[in-house]
């Protein structure tokens, strides 16, 4: 087991930031820790890294208790903080060399690792640049390079794509997948469900300081009643009797938004035919029709009754 957290409780006065939080991370997996802002993701990461004292519970990393003085464990952990943590006074190369040097003392090895890290994040053309001269995306890449240059076995990335443009975000996500392919175990926290869906082999959904659901993408979606979203563009929506649609079997909800009819149905093979029959009987003309599988937001919505991005 790479990480084993049991019954972690962290309080800030009366506020319970982590409420009997449990987490087990296996070697080689990419665990996505998903939750809205304030759900306790960063607090959990800080406790795991011994940056925060906690009130109750145990944290084991590589099957050994984690503590502020567990330097032998820290040696195998790479961390990419939510906020970019680099020296403005050092160049890109010097920054990566500094952080790598905290883990690797041999100069020759370090030189090779720094070069690899720069290559990995695609900052070869910016080696001599100071951080203030870099764009937001490049800065994030530098932050990642500083965290992974020493080739750690466990990499924790705390919302590494915040305020990053889509192109840089894709580069970062591809890089993380590459790191995993190279053998690193990864914990990736985010409130962007698409990112987590894209890279995580297992997803833990957090809310109010505890994990409310955990499993693969498919497993999580199977946990909820909602099977698919059917979207129909109606040409004459004014003639529609919404009650007729809602009364159909397997329909969870039906909602008309302007010309758009959005229907949530239970999982099943022939949900679309009765809907089309009903609309035909009501002489409703259909312009466009498509269906979507449920998202993690649906999972979160069904479990907590609120949107993931609230």
């Amino acid at each position: 087991m790479v990480i084993n957290v049991k019954n972690l409780v962290k309080r800030y006065g009366d506020l319970i930031a982590l409420d009997h939080f449990n987490l087990a991370v296996q070697e080689g997996e990419v665990l996505g820790l998903l939750g809205p802002n304030g759900s306790g993701k960063t607090t959990a990461i800080n406790c795991i890294l011994s940056l925060l004292k906690y009130d109750k519970g145990t944290i084991d990393i590589f099957d050994q208790p984690m503590s502020p003085d567990a330097y032998h464990l820290k040696r195998d952990i790479g961390i990419v903080m939510q906020n970019v943590a680099v020296f403005d006074e050092l160049t890109v190369y010097e920054n990566i060399d500094y952080f790598c040097g905290l883990y690797i003392s041999d100069k020759q090895t370090r030189k090779k690792l720094v070069a690899e890290a720069i290559d990995f994040v695609g900052l070869n053309d910016f080696k001599k640049f100071y951080p203030k001269k870099l764009s937001g995306g490049l800065l994030r890449r530098l932050n990642i390079a500083c965290g992974i240059a020493h080739k750690p076995k466990l990499i924790i990335l705390d919302e590494p794509t915040v305020a990053v443009d889509p192109q840089s975000r894709n580069n970062i996500l591809e890089g993380i997948q590459k790191l995993n392919q190279q053998g690193a175990t990864i914990i990736y926290t985010s409130h962007y469900m698409e990112e987590v869906e894209q890279i995580a082999s297992r997803i833990a959904i957090m809310d109010k300081g505890k994990i409310i659901a955990m499993g693969t993408n498919e497993e999580l979606k199977k946990m909820i009643k909602s099977g698919e979203h059917i979207n129909l563009e109606l040409l004459n929506p004014e003639d529609l009797d919404l009650a007729g649609i809602s009364a159909l079997p397997h329909i969870i909800s039906a909602e008309l938004r302007d010309h758009q009819l959005v229907i949530k149905s239970e999982r099943g093979k022939n949900n679309l035919i009765p809907i089309l029959d009903t609309l035909k009987a009501e002489q409703i003309a259909i312009g466009k029709i498509y269906s979507e599988p449920p998202t993690l937001n649906d999972v979160f919505l069904e479990i907590t009754g609120k949107e993931l991005r609230d």
């Binding site: 330097y71 032998h72 820290k74 903080m81 020296f87 952080f99």
Partner: peptide, 18 residues
């Protein structure tokens, strides 16, 4: 000021340097 910057300090604390 640089070394006591919260983010850098936390980052340094994550490293194995005593």
């Amino acid at each position: 000021l640089v070394f006591n910057d919260t983010d850098l300090k936390r980052r340094n604390l994550c490293s194995p340097i005593r």
